[in-house]
């Protein structure tokens, strides 16, 4: 609990790192901050063309089906991979100055999160234009879905950022894991494409399954997601977060010696 108090005292550092990351990312480019929107927009255009003409999918409005799942997934996977590397990347700060070390992965994941939120502007636009429409009750559950995903991503980022400092191979192992993980999560396809009942049940052992399904329920099907599964995911996220912080707080004392 001590750490919570300390992080609160250092909240401005988190904000300013997030700001620096978001603004620094496109600094110097002509379009600047607009890239935050242009990037996903063109991604969507490409998917639409690809899956309408080149590789037509039996799923109706497949581009939307994919897009509403892919954006949250990208947030998750970049938090995981970049977050794992975040302490190493902030070597100079960590070895020279004191601040609660958790600030670094928190700021990283938060900046990815804010990036996703900004992309949601595009998602909402597309959802409305495509004729799916927004269900107000369903939209109301969106914050819970996002928070669930955020704490899961944060827990894992804490865990792996600390481990990576001592075990540098983690970075490469994680890139393989995330590559496989996207196929073990119904991002590119709907879960009911899996006909084998047992295997489909196994998919729910993956905490991201429920999260991605929930996003799709809200934004593609315009319906309220199944709250029970979502709550289980939420609790699971809390457990990951606590575990991640436990490992992190154990390892953080020796960061400066190893870096």
């Amino acid at each position: 609990m001590e750490i919570g108090k300390e992080l609160y005292a250092y909240r401005e550092m988190i904000f300013s790192l997030v700001r620096k990351d978001l603004r620094g990312r496109y600094k110097g480019s002509v379009l600047g901050f607009l890239w935050t929107f242009i990037n996903p927009l063109f991604q969507l255009i490409v998917y639409t063309i690809a899956f309408s003409f080149i590789l037509p999918s039996p799923i109706e409005k497949y581009y939307l089906h994919l897009f509403v799942a892919l954006i949250p997934w990208i947030f998750f996977s970049s938090s995981l991979q970049g977050g794992a590397n975040s302490i190493m990347a902030a070597k100079n700060l960590v070895s020279k100055i004191y601040f609660p070390r958790e600030v670094i992965p928190i700021a990283y994941v938060t900046s990815c999160f804010v990036n996703m939120l900004l992309t949601f502007v595009i998602i909402f636009l597309v959802v409305m234009i495509s004729g799916v429409g927004l269900n107000a009750l369903a939209i109301a559950t969106l914050p819970l879905i996002m928070i669930t995903e955020y704490i899961m991503a944060l827990g894992l980022a804490l865990l792996f950022s600390a481990v990576t400092v001592f075990f540098r191979d983690m970075e490469h192992i994680l890139s393989i894991i995330t590559m496989a993980w996207i196929y073990l999560t119904p991002v590119l396809y709907p879960l009911d494409m899996i006909t084998n009942e047992t295997i489909r049940k196994l998919f729910y052992l993956n905490p991201m399954t429920a999260v991605i399904e929930a996003y799709r329920d809200v934004l593609y099907y315009a319906r309220v997601p199944e709250m029970n599964t979502l709550l289980v995911s939420f609790l699971f996220g809390i457990i990951i977060l606590i575990f991640g912080e436990l490992v992190f707080s154990k390892l953080k004392k020796r960061f400066a010696e190893v870096l």
Binding site: A9, Y10, E12, S16, L17, K20, K27, N92, L93, I97
Partner: peptide
Amino acid sequence: AGFHPDMTGRENIYTNASIFG
């Protein structure tokens, strides 16, 4: 610590001071 070369002196004051908590 944490100075960003592309940001102004003023912005960097905020970043740097925030690192001191």
